[in-house]
């Protein structure tokens, strides 16, 4: 009986933690941005302004949920669900602590990449079904951006895969017991970080939304909880990429003294804060700059990194 119930328990815990964390990130992001801009941010509702999370949720839930009459209705409704669903499904393969994982797939990384690729459908469909030129432009941009950055996202983490000799995330973490992969794979880490930011369409690479150019890009026509789904989906993506970075390059749950799950949480939280710092500090590149960076700089670097790592591993064998 216990064997049957344990995965359900894990699923419940993961869903609870991830969804609450992604809602809480609204507050974390606003407070951190304020901190770096010498302000306070939301500090009035409840202790430290934590009630702001609840207030924001209530606001999103009670706002008018309007579907424009010119929109392609079924697709319009489906699009925000896809981004949340794919991001949440990705958490199935994320090991939070030894044994505490929903599905310990032997192709965990491929599953992760596949799900994050599916996320692009959400953006494109949202942009298309809104029947609005700005939304469409946002959708097209997002598609081009995510496709190009996915290419070297996969390649950049293959270095870790080669070193660990496995696609299974738990194996990769265990392989870092002696040395975190960030040391031999520093280039891979940087490449993966940049690709991760682009993949979640976070601020230096938020050309799909680009307020100053495209109103709100692909979600211009969305309101109420449908907009909230994109919002939450983005934060889940941030958590996912941060978790992936800490798993692939920073030894996941490995660490002294503290319990494994806490180590994992600390590392993930660190990268979430890094994401927010990137947002606070960096300007948005032009679209052609983004593209040429992706194809002309990052992709060759990722290939070289893969080649060198493979050569070194072969030579040492």
């Amino acid at each position: 009986m216990r064997l049957n119930l344990f995965p359900l328990l894990v699923i419940a815990v993961v869903l609870f933690v991830v969804l609450n964390l992604s809602a809480g990130l609204i507050w974390v992001e606003r407070r951190l941005l304020a901190l770096w801009q010498d302000r306070y941010g939301p500090n009035r509702v409840g202790p430290f302004g934590l009630g702001q999370i609840l207030a924001d949720s209530i606001k999103l839930f009670t706002k008018e949920d309007w579907i424009p009459p010119f929109a392609d209705k079924p697709v319009f409704i489906l699009a925000p669900a896809i981004v949340v669903a794919t991001s949440l499904i990705s958490f199935a393969v994320v090991p939070f602590a030894p044994g505490f994982v929903i599905a310990d797939l032997n192709i965990g990384i491929l599953f992760l990449l596949a799900m994050s690729s599916l996320g692009v459908y959400s953006v494109v469909l949202a942009g298309w079904s809104s029947n609005n030129k700005y939304s469409l432009l946002g959708g097209i941009r997002a598609a081009a951006q995510m496709m190009s950055y996915e290419v070297f996202m996969g390649l950049s983490l293959l270095g870790s895969v080669i070193l660990a000799g496995s696609f299974r995330l738990t194996d990769i973490v265990e392989a870092q017991r002696g040395l975190w992969f960030v040391v031999p794979q520093f280039l891979g880490f940087i490449l993966f970080l940049i690709a991760g930011v682009a993949e979640t369409r976070r601020l230096p690479f938020d050309l799909a939304e680009a307020e100053s150019e495209l109103i709100a890009g692909f979600h211009s026509e969305y309101s109420g909880m449908k907009f909230g789904m994109f919002f939450v989906g983005e934060y889940i993506g941030v958590i996912l990429v941060s978790a992936a970075i800490s798993l692939l390059f920073f030894g996941g749950w490995l660490g002294p003294v503290l319990p494994p799950a806490l180590w994992f949480a600390v590392k993930t939280m660190f990268f979430i804060c890094l994401f927010i710092l990137l947002r606070a500090a960096l300007p948005r590149p032009r679209f052609d700059q983004l593209m040429s960076w992706g194809w002309k700089v990052m992709l060759p670097l990722a290939l070289v990194n893969l080649l060198v790592t493979g050569a070194v591993v072969l030579a040492r064998r």
Partner: peptide, 10 residues
């Protein structure tokens, strides 16, 4: 920007 963590808030 990170150094502003320790700056006085205005």
């Amino acid at each position: 920007v990170f150094r502003h963590t320790f700056a006085r808030r205005v």
